[in-house]
Design a protein around this nucleic acid. Sequence first.
DNA 1: GTTGAAATTGACATCAATGTGAAGTTCTAG
DNA 2: CTAGAACTTCACATTGATGTCAATTTCAAC
Lengths: 149, 149
Amino acid sequence: MRIGDLAERSGVSTRSLRYYEEQGLVPAFRTAGGHREYDESDVGRVRFVQLLFSAGLPSRAIVQILPFLDTGIATAAMRQRLDDEHDRIQRQIDELTLARDRLAELRTIAADSAGGRSAQECRLAAEAAVTCSRRSADRRTSETPVSAS
Amino acid sequence: MRIGDLAERSGVSTRSLRYYEEQGLVPAFRTAGGHREYDESDVGRVRFVQLLFSAGLPSRAIVQILPFLDTGIATAAMRQRLDDEHDRIQRQIDELTLARDRLAELRTIAADSAGGRSAQECRLAAEAAVTCSRRSADRRTSETPVSAS
DNA sequence: GTTGAAATTGACATCAATGTGAAGTTCTAG
DNA sequence: CTAGAACTTCACATTGATGTCAATTTCAAC
């Protein structure tokens, strides 16, 4: 399988696949002419790499984890990395959940705004929902101000 | 309150606060000499902005949502944005949850590796856990290859 | 007033993955 | 054998929030 096929099968660009190889994430065989040659199993590997990327792991971390898939041997550093990233992701999930709930509250209030409630009521409700500012941005300069020369 | 105080109170750098103003997220009054002047309410506002940033909203999106806090008036575009970001965050949570679970499985298997099970067993288990490649990176060039000149 | 701390703007750097385009090479179908 | 599609490497651009350095100005306290 060549790079174009793998790109299509796994849903990433050829550019990304070259980058993955450069980073040592998805190594490739080479034809006599220098073209990359992949096999069926790489489709899953690329998808896994993608999953980790989208979870915010930097390539450095993925590089550290991936050899386990190939060798089945886990070093202490590798286990540590697994733990660290797991925890980091969990923290991120918690944060996202909080943000999601805040937005959901605002959405509800905004719907009220479209319905009966007054702007003033909504503003107060929104403030409460967000535990946030009173009277910010009343008549302030929201643009970059004149230079103080 | 001046920028240094607000930075300390809200836990963001002064650099970021200047950026927030530049983006129209947290406008500030100015003293005669041009220094930024904040009030108590801005602490919560900055924290909320930070929450949205950490949830992956670009400033453009935050700019669109924030006026609701100040006016209590929600435009259609604003409600749409709230919905979109809510859904995007939900999708991200799902993705992160998947990644977290995969890492947790790998961690379990890696622990087995430290304990009794053989590398071969672990390799197979890891592959299965990840739904990923068999025999990738056997004897491939994982470095950037020689130029094909 | 004077001084030192803290503010100001501006420019450039960073990270990380990916886009993009050029210039050249290899593969494959006819 | 040849045309053209697909590949190769290299290099620079992008995005967005933030770090950092530098030269200058303002504020607060004495």
